[in-house]
């Protein structure tokens, strides 16, 4: 049995090391304007925000907008999103670290989400995982040295009728075999 129950998708409570500049006592940090977000991202956030009575509702959406461009959400972007939505850094990070599709650590150019849930388990997911690990030379939660792939376990992808299945970036792949995996990986530079 390869997967320990706690192997996460690599976005859990991360080691909290880097120190941020302190906010001045008299100046709440949420008053500081955002400087970094591109107009395009801001537009996307604003468009989404119109759907909700409260601006904070789009926080996950905003993080995903950043991630769509950078691959992951770094501290600076997170702070920008916080400022743009009138939230604090901690408030946003509390949300960012909850959801598994938001990455708070760098990922490779392609993120492999391999389904580890029951139907895939029953149809031989473990062997495929072993194959993937060997082929990429990484464990779950890791990124290949060349920065090409990150391998993460994912809850049921809703592809049970095509199990075993995985998702790379935005594409889903079912009926996996070792050979098919090799072929699919080959298509991702």
């Amino acid at each position: 049995m390869g997967v320990s129950p706690m192997s996460s998708t690599g976005v859990g409570p991360v080691a909290k090391k880097k120190k941020l500049p302190e906010t001045r006592a008299r100046r709440p940090c949420h008053e500081m304007g955002s400087i970094m977000l591109s107009d395009e991202v801001k537009k996307e956030i604003d468009a989404e925000a119109r759907h909700y009575p409260q601006r904070r509702a789009v926080v996950a959406e905003a993080l995903k907008a950043v991630q769509a461009r950078r691959g992951w959400v770094d501290d600076e972007s997170l702070r920008d999103v916080a400022d743009y939505l009138g939230l604090s850094f901690d408030e946003v990070d509390s949300i960012a670290t909850f959801y598994n599709l938001i990455f708070r650590q760098p990922v490779g150019r392609h993120v492999i989400l391999i389904c580890d849930s029951v139907s895939c388990y029953l149809t031989g997911y473990e062997k495929l995982l072993d194959h993937l690990k060997k082929k990429l030379g990484i464990a779950l939660g890791q990124t290949t040295a060349d920065g090409r792939f990150t391998l993460l376990p994912n809850a049921c992808l809703g592809l049970c009728e095509q199990a075993p299945a995985m998702m790379i970036d935005n594409e889903t792949y079912g009926h996996l075999t070792a050979a098919r995996i090799d072929e699919i990986l080959g298509k991702h530079e």
Partner: peptide, 16 residues
């Protein structure tokens, strides 16, 4: 397939 293994897969999911 081992039913215990199947249960493990399920419970890993729920625990996570």
């Amino acid at each position: 397939v081992c039913p215990v293994g199947m249960m493990l897969s399920l419970e890993i999911f729920f625990a996570r």
